[in-house]
Design a protein around this nucleic acid. Structure first.
Lengths: 171, 171
DNA sequence: CACGGCTGATTGACATGTCAATTAGTAGCT
DNA sequence: AGCTACTAATTGACATGTCAATCAGCCGTG
Protein backbone atom coordinates (compact mmCIF):
# COMPACT_ATOMS: atom_id res chain seq x y z
CA UNK A 1 0.00 0.00 0.00
CA UNK A 2 2.82 2.38 -0.60
CA UNK A 3 2.49 3.81 -4.10
CA UNK A 4 -0.95 3.98 -5.54
CA UNK A 5 -0.89 4.25 -9.28
CA UNK A 6 -2.36 7.71 -9.90
CA UNK A 7 -5.38 6.41 -11.76
CA UNK A 8 -7.55 8.80 -13.74
CA UNK A 9 -9.98 10.54 -11.42
CA UNK A 10 -13.11 9.32 -13.04
CA UNK A 11 -14.97 11.32 -10.46
CA UNK A 12 -13.97 14.49 -12.24
CA UNK A 13 -15.45 13.57 -15.58
CA UNK A 14 -18.48 15.53 -16.66
CA UNK A 15 -21.62 13.95 -18.05
CA UNK A 16 -21.82 13.57 -21.82
CA UNK A 17 -24.46 15.41 -23.77
CA UNK A 18 -26.48 12.24 -23.99
CA UNK A 19 -26.26 11.57 -20.27
CA UNK A 20 -27.31 15.11 -19.58
CA UNK A 21 -30.24 14.82 -21.93
CA UNK A 22 -31.44 11.70 -20.17
CA UNK A 23 -31.05 13.39 -16.81
CA UNK A 24 -33.10 16.34 -17.88
CA UNK A 25 -35.77 14.20 -19.49
CA UNK A 26 -35.97 12.06 -16.42
CA UNK A 27 -36.18 14.77 -13.83
CA UNK A 28 -38.49 16.98 -15.83
CA UNK A 29 -40.80 14.13 -16.60
CA UNK A 30 -41.07 13.27 -12.94
CA UNK A 31 -41.84 16.90 -12.28
CA UNK A 32 -44.51 17.08 -14.94
CA UNK A 33 -46.07 13.89 -13.65
CA UNK A 34 -46.13 15.17 -10.11
CA UNK A 35 -47.66 18.41 -11.19
CA UNK A 36 -50.31 16.69 -13.32
CA UNK A 37 -51.31 14.47 -10.40
CA UNK A 38 -51.41 17.43 -8.07
CA UNK A 39 -53.58 19.39 -10.47
CA UNK A 40 -56.07 16.55 -10.78
CA UNK A 41 -56.23 16.06 -7.05
CA UNK A 42 -56.76 19.75 -6.61
CA UNK A 43 -59.49 20.07 -9.16
CA UNK A 44 -61.31 16.93 -8.09
CA UNK A 45 -61.04 17.30 -4.34
CA UNK A 46 -59.69 20.74 -3.50
CA UNK A 47 -56.82 18.99 -1.76
CA UNK A 48 -53.12 19.47 -2.33
CA UNK A 49 -50.75 16.52 -2.26
CA UNK A 50 -49.59 17.75 1.12
CA UNK A 51 -53.14 17.71 2.39
CA UNK A 52 -53.51 14.22 1.00
CA UNK A 53 -50.41 12.92 2.76
CA UNK A 54 -51.55 14.34 6.09
CA UNK A 55 -55.10 13.09 5.73
CA UNK A 56 -53.93 9.63 4.66
CA UNK A 57 -51.74 9.29 7.72
CA UNK A 58 -54.46 10.51 10.06
CA UNK A 59 -57.13 8.34 8.48
CA UNK A 60 -55.00 5.29 9.20
CA UNK A 61 -54.11 6.38 12.72
CA UNK A 62 -55.67 5.03 15.85
CA UNK A 63 -58.67 7.16 16.68
CA UNK A 64 -57.87 9.34 13.66
CA UNK A 65 -55.43 11.26 15.81
CA UNK A 66 -51.69 11.48 16.08
CA UNK A 67 -49.04 13.45 17.89
CA UNK A 68 -47.63 16.14 15.68
CA UNK A 69 -44.10 14.80 15.81
CA UNK A 70 -45.22 11.24 15.06
CA UNK A 71 -47.07 12.56 12.08
CA UNK A 72 -44.03 14.44 10.89
CA UNK A 73 -41.91 11.32 11.19
CA UNK A 74 -44.54 9.18 9.48
CA UNK A 75 -44.75 11.29 6.36
CA UNK A 76 -41.12 12.37 6.59
CA UNK A 77 -41.64 16.11 6.77
CA UNK A 78 -39.75 18.73 8.67
CA UNK A 79 -41.60 19.78 11.74
CA UNK A 80 -41.85 23.40 10.82
CA UNK A 81 -43.22 22.50 7.43
CA UNK A 82 -45.85 20.38 9.08
CA UNK A 83 -46.67 23.10 11.56
CA UNK A 84 -47.28 25.64 8.82
CA UNK A 85 -49.30 23.18 6.82
CA UNK A 86 -51.44 22.16 9.76
CA UNK A 87 -52.20 25.80 10.37
CA UNK A 88 -53.58 26.08 6.87
CA UNK A 89 -55.49 22.82 7.14
CA UNK A 90 -56.95 23.86 10.46
CA UNK A 91 -58.28 27.05 8.91
CA UNK A 92 -60.07 24.90 6.36
CA UNK A 93 -61.41 22.67 9.10
CA UNK A 94 -59.69 19.55 7.76
CA UNK A 95 -57.93 18.87 11.04
CA UNK A 96 -58.04 20.16 14.57
CA UNK A 97 -55.30 20.60 17.15
CA UNK A 98 -55.91 19.41 20.66
CA UNK A 99 -53.79 19.70 23.74
CA UNK A 100 -51.96 16.57 24.66
CA UNK A 101 -52.80 15.19 28.10
CA UNK A 102 -49.57 13.24 28.50
CA UNK A 103 -47.20 16.03 27.56
CA UNK A 104 -48.50 19.54 27.68
CA UNK A 105 -45.89 20.79 25.24
CA UNK A 106 -47.33 18.44 22.69
CA UNK A 107 -50.20 18.72 20.29
CA UNK A 108 -52.51 16.03 19.06
CA UNK A 109 -53.67 16.39 15.52
CA UNK A 110 -57.20 15.16 15.02
CA UNK A 111 -58.94 14.38 11.77
CA UNK A 112 -62.24 16.25 11.58
CA UNK A 113 -65.39 14.89 9.99
CA UNK A 114 -64.89 17.33 7.15
CA UNK A 115 -61.34 16.14 6.71
CA UNK A 116 -62.33 12.51 6.67
CA UNK A 117 -65.06 13.16 4.15
CA UNK A 118 -62.73 15.10 1.86
CA UNK A 119 -60.14 12.38 2.09
CA UNK A 120 -62.58 9.59 1.37
CA UNK A 121 -63.91 11.39 -1.65
CA UNK A 122 -60.45 11.98 -2.98
CA UNK A 123 -58.87 8.54 -2.73
CA UNK A 124 -60.49 6.66 -5.59
CA UNK A 125 -60.05 9.43 -8.16
CA UNK A 126 -56.51 9.98 -6.96
CA UNK A 127 -55.55 6.32 -7.22
CA UNK A 128 -57.23 6.18 -10.57
CA UNK A 129 -55.19 9.12 -11.75
CA UNK A 130 -52.00 7.40 -10.66
CA UNK A 131 -52.99 4.40 -12.67
CA UNK A 132 -53.94 6.39 -15.70
CA UNK A 133 -50.95 8.69 -15.78
CA UNK A 134 -48.26 6.31 -14.61
CA UNK A 135 -49.14 2.64 -14.43
CA UNK A 136 -51.12 2.52 -17.67
CA UNK A 137 -48.38 4.32 -19.53
CA UNK A 138 -45.87 1.58 -18.88
CA UNK A 139 -45.43 -2.02 -19.91
CA UNK A 140 -44.85 -4.53 -17.16
CA UNK A 141 -41.12 -4.50 -17.85
CA UNK A 142 -41.02 -0.74 -17.77
CA UNK A 143 -42.83 -0.71 -14.47
CA UNK A 144 -40.30 -3.11 -13.04
CA UNK A 145 -37.52 -0.98 -14.48
CA UNK A 146 -38.99 2.07 -12.77
CA UNK A 147 -38.95 0.30 -9.42
CA UNK A 148 -35.43 -0.87 -10.06
CA UNK A 149 -34.25 2.61 -10.98
CA UNK A 150 -35.78 4.10 -7.88
CA UNK A 151 -34.17 1.53 -5.64
CA UNK A 152 -30.78 1.89 -7.29
CA UNK A 153 -30.80 5.66 -7.15
CA UNK A 154 -31.88 5.64 -3.52
CA UNK A 155 -29.18 3.22 -2.55
CA UNK A 156 -26.60 5.34 -4.30
CA UNK A 157 -27.90 8.50 -2.66
CA UNK A 158 -27.83 6.88 0.73
CA UNK A 159 -24.27 5.72 0.15
CA UNK A 160 -23.01 9.11 -0.97
CA UNK A 161 -25.10 10.74 1.70
CA UNK A 162 -23.02 8.93 4.24
CA UNK A 163 -19.98 10.74 2.89
CA UNK A 164 -21.51 14.20 2.72
CA UNK A 165 -23.70 15.94 5.26
CA UNK A 166 -26.52 15.57 2.75
CA UNK A 167 -30.01 16.12 4.16
CA UNK A 168 -32.71 14.66 1.93
CA UNK A 169 -36.28 15.77 1.75
CA UNK A 170 -39.43 14.73 -0.06
CA UNK A 171 -42.15 16.90 -1.51
CA UNK B 1 -69.33 2.28 -36.02
CA UNK B 2 -72.80 1.59 -34.78
CA UNK B 3 -72.76 -0.60 -31.67
CA UNK B 4 -69.60 -0.69 -29.59
CA UNK B 5 -69.42 -3.79 -27.48
CA UNK B 6 -69.59 -2.45 -23.92
CA UNK B 7 -66.17 -3.76 -22.94
CA UNK B 8 -65.02 -3.75 -19.34
CA UNK B 9 -63.91 -0.28 -18.39
CA UNK B 10 -60.33 -1.07 -17.50
CA UNK B 11 -59.96 2.61 -16.86
CA UNK B 12 -61.78 2.16 -13.57
CA UNK B 13 -59.37 -0.35 -12.05
CA UNK B 14 -57.24 0.89 -9.20
CA UNK B 15 -53.52 0.31 -8.95
CA UNK B 16 -52.38 -2.74 -7.04
CA UNK B 17 -50.36 -2.37 -3.86
CA UNK B 18 -47.23 -3.21 -5.80
CA UNK B 19 -47.95 -0.69 -8.53
CA UNK B 20 -48.60 1.93 -5.90
CA UNK B 21 -45.36 1.11 -4.13
CA UNK B 22 -43.42 1.54 -7.35
CA UNK B 23 -45.18 4.81 -8.06
CA UNK B 24 -44.30 6.18 -4.66
CA UNK B 25 -40.72 4.98 -4.84
CA UNK B 26 -40.34 6.48 -8.26
CA UNK B 27 -41.79 9.87 -7.57
CA UNK B 28 -40.21 10.25 -4.18
CA UNK B 29 -36.82 9.23 -5.49
CA UNK B 30 -37.03 11.82 -8.21
CA UNK B 31 -37.95 14.35 -5.57
CA UNK B 32 -35.06 13.41 -3.30
CA UNK B 33 -32.68 13.56 -6.24
CA UNK B 34 -33.90 16.97 -7.25
CA UNK B 35 -33.61 18.25 -3.75
CA UNK B 36 -30.10 16.84 -3.30
CA UNK B 37 -28.96 18.50 -6.51
CA UNK B 38 -30.56 21.77 -5.52
CA UNK B 39 -28.92 21.67 -2.12
CA UNK B 40 -25.48 21.11 -3.65
CA UNK B 41 -25.95 23.88 -6.15
CA UNK B 42 -27.08 26.18 -3.39
CA UNK B 43 -24.21 25.40 -1.06
CA UNK B 44 -21.56 25.51 -3.77
CA UNK B 45 -22.78 28.53 -5.70
CA UNK B 46 -25.55 30.26 -3.76
CA UNK B 47 -27.77 29.64 -6.76
CA UNK B 48 -31.13 27.92 -6.85
CA UNK B 49 -32.05 25.64 -9.71
CA UNK B 50 -34.33 28.39 -10.96
CA UNK B 51 -31.43 30.82 -10.97
CA UNK B 52 -29.38 28.24 -12.84
CA UNK B 53 -32.00 27.77 -15.53
CA UNK B 54 -32.28 31.50 -16.10
CA UNK B 55 -28.54 32.08 -16.12
CA UNK B 56 -27.95 29.15 -18.45
CA UNK B 57 -30.43 30.51 -20.97
CA UNK B 58 -29.01 34.02 -20.79
CA UNK B 59 -25.43 32.84 -21.00
CA UNK B 60 -26.22 31.11 -24.27
CA UNK B 61 -28.23 34.01 -25.63
CA UNK B 62 -26.98 36.48 -28.19
CA UNK B 63 -25.36 39.35 -26.34
CA UNK B 64 -26.28 37.71 -23.05
CA UNK B 65 -29.69 39.28 -23.33
CA UNK B 66 -33.15 38.08 -24.13
CA UNK B 67 -36.70 39.33 -24.20
CA UNK B 68 -38.56 38.28 -21.12
CA UNK B 69 -41.18 36.32 -23.01
CA UNK B 70 -38.57 34.51 -25.11
CA UNK B 71 -36.81 33.54 -21.94
CA UNK B 72 -40.03 32.25 -20.42
CA UNK B 73 -40.72 30.16 -23.51
CA UNK B 74 -37.15 28.90 -23.63
CA UNK B 75 -37.13 27.53 -20.12
CA UNK B 76 -40.84 26.74 -20.18
CA UNK B 77 -41.93 28.85 -17.22
CA UNK B 78 -45.09 30.76 -16.67
CA UNK B 79 -44.56 34.43 -17.24
CA UNK B 80 -45.60 35.50 -13.82
CA UNK B 81 -43.26 32.98 -12.27
CA UNK B 82 -40.43 34.36 -14.33
CA UNK B 83 -41.35 37.90 -13.45
CA UNK B 84 -41.24 37.20 -9.74
CA UNK B 85 -38.02 35.28 -10.07
CA UNK B 86 -36.35 37.99 -12.12
CA UNK B 87 -37.28 40.47 -9.44
CA UNK B 88 -35.39 38.41 -6.90
CA UNK B 89 -32.45 37.89 -9.22
CA UNK B 90 -32.30 41.57 -10.00
CA UNK B 91 -32.07 42.39 -6.30
CA UNK B 92 -29.06 40.11 -6.14
CA UNK B 93 -27.53 41.77 -9.19
CA UNK B 94 -27.53 38.56 -11.23
CA UNK B 95 -29.53 40.09 -14.04
CA UNK B 96 -30.72 43.53 -15.05
CA UNK B 97 -33.91 44.65 -16.79
CA UNK B 98 -33.64 47.10 -19.63
CA UNK B 99 -36.30 48.78 -21.67
CA UNK B 100 -36.84 47.32 -25.07
CA UNK B 101 -36.26 49.68 -27.96
CA UNK B 102 -38.41 47.76 -30.42
CA UNK B 103 -41.46 47.36 -28.20
CA UNK B 104 -41.77 49.66 -25.27
CA UNK B 105 -44.07 47.28 -23.42
CA UNK B 106 -41.31 44.76 -23.44
CA UNK B 107 -38.33 44.16 -21.21
CA UNK B 108 -34.94 42.87 -22.09
CA UNK B 109 -33.28 40.74 -19.52
CA UNK B 110 -29.55 41.18 -19.42
CA UNK B 111 -26.98 38.97 -17.76
CA UNK B 112 -24.77 41.05 -15.47
CA UNK B 113 -21.07 40.44 -14.94
CA UNK B 114 -21.88 39.14 -11.48
CA UNK B 115 -24.46 36.80 -12.93
CA UNK B 116 -22.11 35.47 -15.55
CA UNK B 117 -19.39 34.91 -12.99
CA UNK B 118 -21.75 33.06 -10.66
CA UNK B 119 -23.01 30.92 -13.47
CA UNK B 120 -19.53 30.06 -14.73
CA UNK B 121 -18.43 29.05 -11.28
CA UNK B 122 -21.44 26.86 -10.80
CA UNK B 123 -21.51 24.84 -14.00
CA UNK B 124 -18.70 22.38 -13.48
CA UNK B 125 -19.64 21.46 -9.92
CA UNK B 126 -23.28 21.21 -10.94
CA UNK B 127 -22.61 18.93 -13.87
CA UNK B 128 -20.32 16.89 -11.69
CA UNK B 129 -23.07 16.52 -9.13
CA UNK B 130 -25.45 15.28 -11.80
CA UNK B 131 -22.92 12.71 -12.80
CA UNK B 132 -22.22 11.63 -9.26
CA UNK B 133 -25.79 11.43 -8.05
CA UNK B 134 -27.48 10.17 -11.18
CA UNK B 135 -25.25 8.94 -13.98
CA UNK B 136 -22.75 7.15 -11.79
CA UNK B 137 -25.51 5.41 -9.89
CA UNK B 138 -26.77 3.63 -12.97
CA UNK B 139 -25.50 0.96 -15.31
CA UNK B 140 -25.60 1.71 -19.00
CA UNK B 141 -28.78 -0.31 -19.36
CA UNK B 142 -30.39 1.48 -16.49
CA UNK B 143 -29.53 4.82 -17.97
CA UNK B 144 -31.11 3.80 -21.22
CA UNK B 145 -34.13 2.55 -19.31
CA UNK B 146 -34.41 5.91 -17.58
CA UNK B 147 -34.47 7.69 -20.91
CA UNK B 148 -37.00 5.25 -22.22
CA UNK B 149 -39.25 5.67 -19.21
CA UNK B 150 -39.15 9.43 -19.48
CA UNK B 151 -40.03 9.33 -23.16
CA UNK B 152 -42.83 6.84 -22.65
CA UNK B 153 -44.36 8.75 -19.77
CA UNK B 154 -44.17 12.02 -21.65
CA UNK B 155 -45.79 10.57 -24.69
CA UNK B 156 -48.57 9.15 -22.56
CA UNK B 157 -49.04 12.43 -20.74
CA UNK B 158 -49.17 14.32 -23.99
CA UNK B 159 -51.76 11.90 -25.33
CA UNK B 160 -54.00 12.10 -22.29
CA UNK B 161 -53.35 15.80 -22.07
CA UNK B 162 -55.05 16.14 -25.42
CA UNK B 163 -58.19 14.74 -23.84
CA UNK B 164 -58.15 16.80 -20.67
CA UNK B 165 -57.38 20.50 -20.26
CA UNK B 166 -54.17 19.44 -18.54
CA UNK B 167 -51.59 22.22 -18.18
CA UNK B 168 -48.14 20.84 -17.47
CA UNK B 169 -45.33 22.64 -15.75
CA UNK B 170 -41.72 22.00 -14.92
CA UNK B 171 -39.81 23.00 -11.79
C1' DC C 1 -56.92 58.82 -36.38
C1' DA C 2 -59.95 56.55 -32.91
C1' DC C 3 -61.32 52.31 -30.89
C1' DG C 4 -61.44 47.66 -29.54
C1' DG C 5 -58.91 43.74 -28.92
C1' DC C 6 -54.53 41.47 -28.26
C1' DT C 7 -50.02 41.05 -26.22
C1' DG C 8 -45.97 41.85 -22.82
C1' DA C 9 -45.09 42.18 -18.42
C1' DT C 10 -45.97 43.11 -13.69
C1' DT C 11 -48.57 42.86 -9.46
C1' DG C 12 -51.13 41.13 -5.40
C1' DA C 13 -52.94 37.53 -2.78
C1' DC C 14 -52.07 33.45 -1.29
C1' DA C 15 -50.07 28.29 -0.91
C1' DT C 16 -46.07 25.95 -0.02
C1' DG C 17 -41.04 25.19 1.74
C1' DT C 18 -36.74 26.12 4.29
C1' DC C 19 -34.01 27.83 8.04
C1' DA C 20 -33.11 29.98 12.36
C1' DA C 21 -34.94 31.64 16.53
C1' DT C 22 -38.27 31.30 20.14
C1' DT C 23 -41.48 29.54 23.54
C1' DA C 24 -42.85 26.29 26.76
C1' DG C 25 -42.56 22.17 29.18
C1' DT C 26 -40.03 17.69 30.68
C1' DA C 27 -36.32 15.47 32.89
C1' DG C 28 -32.13 14.46 35.14
C1' DC C 29 -28.98 15.87 38.69
C1' DT C 30 -27.55 18.04 42.96
C1' DA D 1 -36.59 22.97 45.06
C1' DG D 2 -33.23 24.90 41.56
C1' DC D 3 -30.34 24.43 37.38
C1' DT D 4 -29.35 22.76 33.19
C1' DA D 5 -30.09 20.29 29.11
C1' DC D 6 -33.14 18.47 25.98
C1' DT D 7 -37.49 18.13 23.39
C1' DA D 8 -42.17 19.64 21.21
C1' DA D 9 -44.04 22.75 18.58
C1' DT D 10 -44.63 27.25 16.75
C1' DT D 11 -43.14 31.48 14.71
C1' DG D 12 -41.05 34.86 11.52
C1' DA D 13 -38.57 35.96 7.58
C1' DC D 14 -37.96 34.84 3.31
C1' DA D 15 -37.72 31.95 -1.37
C1' DT D 16 -40.50 29.92 -4.58
C1' DG D 17 -45.05 28.93 -7.28
C1' DT D 18 -49.81 29.58 -8.96
C1' DC D 19 -53.76 32.19 -10.40
C1' DA D 20 -56.37 36.15 -11.49
C1' DA D 21 -56.30 40.94 -12.21
C1' DT D 22 -54.13 44.95 -13.99
C1' DC D 23 -51.60 48.23 -16.78
C1' DA D 24 -49.52 49.81 -20.73
C1' DG D 25 -48.50 49.79 -25.41
C1' DC D 26 -49.19 47.49 -30.06
C1' DC D 27 -52.09 47.01 -34.22
C1' DG D 28 -55.87 46.12 -37.55
C1' DT D 29 -60.06 48.05 -39.06
C1' DG D 30 -63.54 51.48 -40.03
Amino acid sequence: MTHDTPRPRRTRRLPTTEELRIWRDFIETAEVLRSALTARLQSESSLSSGDYAVLLALSEADGHRMRSSELAAHIDWERSRLSHHLGRMERRDLIRREECAADSRGAEIVLTATGLRSFRQSTVPHLRAIRELFVDALSHDQLVAAGDLAATLRAHLAASGRQRPAPAKTG
